[in-house]
Amino acid sequence: MQKFERLEGLVAPLDRANVDTDLIIPKQFLKSIKRTGFGVNLFDDLRYLDEGYPGQDIAGRPLNPDFVLNQPRYQGASVLLARRNFGCGSSREHAPWALEDFGFKVVIAPSFADIFYNNAFKNGILLVTLAEEEIDRLFQEVEPNEGYRLDIDLENQRLITPSGEVLEFDVDAFRKHCLLEGLDDIGLTLKDEGAIRTFEARHRVQRPWLFRETMKVG
């Protein structure tokens, strides 16, 4: 996993609540058996005026000029400003893969759906949760200020606006540690292999029916 320490990035605003995972990456793109290449289909239904399908050459597709990510001023954005309950819906990890592949490193919103929250951090995307009023203010600031950038400092859990205002945010210690160090979860867990084996042996004695090889079946 990529390390994340600090980022100073261009902000794109997506002014819409309950952005679901079908909207982030429509299901026809879940057919890939790879982890990469989803960026061109991020927000596919919003970005293009036609219906997309996997493996298509996107060069000839009609863009929706009204969609925020198609506007010249937001090209190269790495910070997505969003509304409440971002990422609701399915468990598809293709959603953070698409965001990351497109170039987003940070999403800022008043709240996120649980499974999406996990998936994003596991892919090195920092999710910053701020109060609704703070989010409202950021939306108001981005719109009139072309080139609006935010400085996001994970180590100190602060976000600094162009005017120098500092907003603090919470992030749990474990996820922060993993992002800062770029750590692989599985490797970390396997350090506890002994504890897992001990637990498993006891569990098997207490509840043998949970283990097919020790279970008496008919």
């Binding site: 982890r35 468990s91 499974i115 996990n118 998936n119 474990f174 979860d185 599985i186 396997l190 897992i196």
Partner: peptide, 17 residues
């Protein structure tokens, strides 16, 4: 429900964080 990274994690460790 879990994401794909977690599917891999469960396959490899029989545990979840």
């Amino acid at each position: 429900g879990i994401g794909t990274s977690e599917v891999e994690h469960v396959l490899a460790t029989q545990c979840l964080l």
